[in-house]
């Protein structure tokens, strides 16, 4: 699994961090998503899919 983020679309909702804290963070200054791990391990894949699904700005894309 490969994760791609679109910083320009991100509305800083932080839903992704709540879903997968090992993969996503937010910048301190403006809350925009920070990708901690672009190729998360298999055990985190469900969480990452959940994160992409709950992101209200469609800023997270998963490339299988």
């Amino acid at each position: 699994m490969k994760v791609v983020i679109d910083e320009e679309k991100c509305v800083a909702a932080g839903q992704c961090v709540a879903a997968a804290v090992d993969v996503f963070d937010q910048r301190d200054e403006d809350g925009v998503v920070v990708l901690l791990n672009a190729t998360p391990p298999a055990e985190l894949e469900d969480d990452v899919r959940q994160a992409a699904a709950v992101c209200p700005a469609l800023a997270i894309t998963i490339v299988d």
């Binding site: 800083a12 932080g14 709540a18 937010q26 910048r27 301190d28 809350g31």
Partner: peptide, 13 residues
């Protein structure tokens, strides 16, 4: 409520 502080607001959810 966060005013230009999205991350810090979320941390208090």
């Amino acid at each position: 409520l966060g005013w230009n502080m999205p991350k810090q607001a979320r941390l208090r959810r």
